[in-house]
């Protein structure tokens, strides 16, 4: 069974159609990269998968996680079922330490599975280990979530959270933006360490450079709310060389020929 199956996903925000019918299948263990120019709907797709309720999803759309439609399920329940999103712009939570935040998160998830809670001291030890692995100073475990962190530190912290929560489907929304090369490598190493036959990734990015470190199984190009091209890693290389303009022209030509035919 596929891990994720998106069928005819159409979504609006404030009356404007952003996603115009997306179909995508992600099998366990696969890494899918979604690329596309600004405003193509990449982040909208990520947010809808995570359960952001500010988007209006068309009733005929379906998002099946392990065969079950999750569109009516709130974000916390999706997270408990193993969906994780690494945010493009992670928020700051003043006054709440990383340890306290993630300890609550993991225990809430465990509670929903009738598992006993994790002791805070054991948890903090594990968290510090994960932070070290991802190149974040372990003292950040005591600091308020993302407060006063640099852009790169925030992104690394998202990957730390992913490593702690061990999702089955991780969506990385432009995690590479604003990262220097060292941070990019640490983030990629963190992701690669987590790759496994039963965990899948959707990596949203503008650029191919992250994909040099995380080799995707599939690359999809999103343009004007639709997947206009799919392929392997070579598609990412092509996009890096040629940019998005050739795809835009191709798509516009196709649209006009449809117009002529109709």
């Amino acid at each position: 069974m596929s891990l994720l199956k998106i069928k005819n996903l159409r979504a609006l925000i404030e009356g404007q159609l952003i996603l115009q019918g997306i179909d995508l299948t992600v099998n366990p263990g696969e890494v899918h990269a979604i690329m596309g120019p600004n405003g193509s709907g990449k982040s909208t797709l990520a947010q809808i998968l995570a359960g952001n309720e500010k988007y209006e999803v068309s009733p005929e759309s379906e998002i099946l996680l392990l065969g079950e439609n999750i569109l009516d399920i709130p974000p916390e329940e999706r997270s408990r079922r193993g969906v994780f999103i690494a945010f493009q712009y992670p928020v700051e939570i003043p006054g709440l330490s990383n340890t306290e935040f993630l300890h609550t998160a993991i225990n809430e998830i465990r509670k929903s599975k009738n598992l006993p809670p994790v002791d805070i001291w054991d948890f903090e030890k594990q968290l510090k280990e994960k932070m070290k692995e991802i190149g974040l100073d372990p003292s950040f475990s005591e600091r308020s979530v993302n407060e006063g962190f640099s852009g790169g530190e925030k992104k690394r912290n998202e990957i730390v959270q992913m490593a702690v929560l061990e999702p089955v489907l991780a969506i990385l929304d432009e995690t590479d933006s604003g990262l220097d090369i060292d941070a990019l490598k640490s983030v990629a190493e963190g992701v690669n360490r987590m790759r496994s036959p039963d965990r899948s990734f959707i990596i949203i990015t503008h650029y191919q450079r992250l994909l040099n470190y995380i080799q995707p199984d599939f690359v999809h190009v999103l343009y004007k709310g639709k997947i206009v091209k799919s392929g392997g890693f070579e598609l990412a290389l092509e996009l890096e060389q040629k940019g998005y303009d050739w795809l835009k022209k191709e798509e516009e030509m196709e649209m006009s020929s449809i117009g002529v035919l109709s």
């Binding site: 995570a50 359960g51 952001n52 309720e53 709130p74 974000p75 916390e76 999706r78 997270s79 408990r80 994780f84 999103i85 945010f87 992670p90 928020v91 939570i93 935040f101 993630l102 609550t104 998160a105 993991i106 809430e108 998830i109 929903s112 959270q161 929560l165």
Partner: peptide
Amino acid sequence: DLIYYFQTRGIK
């Protein structure tokens, strides 16, 4: 947006 962030981490 902060409440939503918590939700995406499994917190009601």
